[in-house]
């Protein structure tokens, strides 16, 4: 396993002088947080969005925040485009009856209900299934997640930007947190905050720049 979260949690374990044991058996993102609350493990990490629902048995420690984003079929956008300003066009898209694909059982379902009330939301079992519905089976008009995931798709396959356009929500961010159980040792919470202070809270642009090899366009 590799990635920003893995490096982060390995660094934390290193500071504490303990080994990391990864548990990847949770059904979905909600289940991961739920199991942390139950005490199945010491903390939950994995680009987990912060929602009030997830705070019933856990408390969040923010370490990243990403702009929310859609990747929309340009033909769908063109069907709404009336030569109006870009900001108004973005809002028209959000208020339209588009079919938007999301990961089922994730926080994106509640975000979609909040920001796209008229859209037809379609949940899929995981992110590859969401992408397949947009690019291969053409069942949906758009997919919804954070900017790092949306931009990654077209950075890694730039030819997709001919037919699909990212829509970035500048003022709606997905706060990513590490979740600790509410009954965890209070000192653990302070130590984690102290550790995260060194890292700082990263935005999507910083993450994409830091991990440029991962995000940069293919040659």
């Amino acid at each position: 396993m590799a990635g920003y979260d893995i490096d982060l949690v390995n660094g934390f374990a290193n500071k504490l002088g303990v080994e990391v044991e990864f548990d990847r058996d949770s059904k979905d993102f909600n289940d991961t947080v739920f199991r942390a609350g139950k005490g199945d493990f010491d903390l939950a990490i994995g680009k987990l969005s912060t929602t009030y629902k997830r705070m019933s048995d856990t408390h969040p420690h923010e370490y990243m925040n990403f702009r929310q984003a859609l990747l929309v079929n340009r033909k769908f956008v063109a069907s709404l485009d009336k030569g109006i300003s870009e900001d108004k066009l973005g809002k028209d898209i959000l208020n339209s009856k588009m079919k938007v694909g999301i990961i089922g059982g994730s926080s994106w379902e509640s975000y979609a209900n909040q920001f796209m009330p008229s859209a037809q939301k379609v949940g899929y079992k995981d992110w590859p299934a969401v992408k397949k519905a947009l690019f291969e089976t053409n069942e949906i008009d758009a997919i919804y997640r954070d900017a790092t995931e949306i931009k990654k798709i077209i950075y890694q396959e730039p030819n997709l930007s001919i037919k699909y356009v990212p829509i970035l929500f500048n003022d709606v961010k997905d706060v990513i947190s590490i979740f600790l159980p509410t009954d965890a040792n209070v000192a653990m919470s302070d130590v984690l905050d102290f550790y995260l202070r060194d890292y700082g809270i990263k935005g999507d642009a910083e993450i994409m720049e830091e991990l440029s090899e991962f995000y940069n366009p293919i040659n």
Partner: peptide, 13 residues
């Protein structure tokens, strides 16, 4: 086209 045709939206503006 990368980055140049992205649509930026301010939902609460």
């Amino acid at each position: 086209m990368l980055d140049t045709t992205d649509i930026q939206v301010n939902i609460f503006k």
